[in-house]
């Protein structure tokens, strides 16, 4: 079982993860705005921008993150943003959003100028996570593990990052054993999804290029975190 320290770490991560959500006024637009490719693109980039702010707030609260060198903090955020956002989007699709909204969001993504070459693998990934029946604890811990990944580009003090990631991996491994006793491979399968997330990360720049319908601009925060000119 989890030790008392591990229990409190888990509750802290969960609480911090659940506190952050995209503001209602943005999710409400999902239902209201019309369905042009242009409107969908603008709405999805507004949601993504809010998503990044949510991600930064969650990251700032990760145990030990504030002790890291500032440049390494930025490098961790930039290196993990795409993967953490894919995880969060998968959770939104698989768990959080009321059923009707999921269809609307999917409809908007499919009609926003993004190429099917990227949309199909994205929804297949969401489905693959749904099949894993991930719990909220697993989503929050896995997101924290993704953010505190030491082998990101430009990280100077990898060792310090590794020391922050290790306890989270230990809690996640124990949690998988407790929550999925029927599936001893569950933890390994979760880690396997991290490899898939890396692939999305590698192809993200191309996806963005294909998504820029009528040379729309991304917001300054998205340009910075996604390294888009």
């Amino acid at each position: 079982d989890l030790t008392p320290e591990q229990q409190s770490l888990l509750h802290y991560i969960m609480d911090s993860y659940n506190r952050q959500c995209i503001p209602q006024y943005i999710t409400r637009k999902l239902l209201q705005e019309d369905f042009s490719a242009e409107e969908n693109f603008l709405l999805l980039t507004e949601m993504a921008t809010s998503h990044v702010q949510v991600l930064v707030e969650f990251t700032k609260k990760l145990p030990g993150f504030q002790t890291l060198d500032h440049e390494d903090q930025i490098a961790l955020l930039k290196g993990s943003a795409v993967e953490a956002m894919f995880l969060r989007s998968a959770e939104i699709f698989n768990r959080k959003m009321p059923h009707g909204h999921t269809d609307l969001l999917e409809e908007r993504i499919r009609n926003s100028g993004m190429s099917d070459d990227y949309i199909t693998p994205m929804f297949n990934f969401y489905k693959s996570l749904e099949e894993l029946k991930m719990t909220q604890e697993e989503y929050s811990l896995l997101t924290a593990v993704v953010i505190l990944t030491p082998d990101r580009q430009y990280i100077k003090d990898k060792e310090s990052v590794e020391k922050l990631q290790e306890p989270l991996l230990e809690v996640l491994q124990k949690l998988c054993q407790v929550q999925h006793p029927e599936n001893p491979q569950h933890f390994a399968r979760l880690l396997g999804r991290l490899t898939e997330l890396r692939t999305f990360n590698h192809h993200h720049a191309e996806m963005l290029m294909s998504w820029r319908v009528n040379d729309h601009k991304f917001t300054p925060l998205l340009c910075e975190i996604w390294d888009v000119q």
Partner: peptide
């Protein structure tokens, strides 16, 4: 160079 947006967000107090 002026503080990047990310740096500003990181340095701002944690908001709920």
């Amino acid at each position: 160079d002026e503080l990047s947006l990310l740096k500003k967000l990181l340095l701002s107090p944690a908001n709920v």
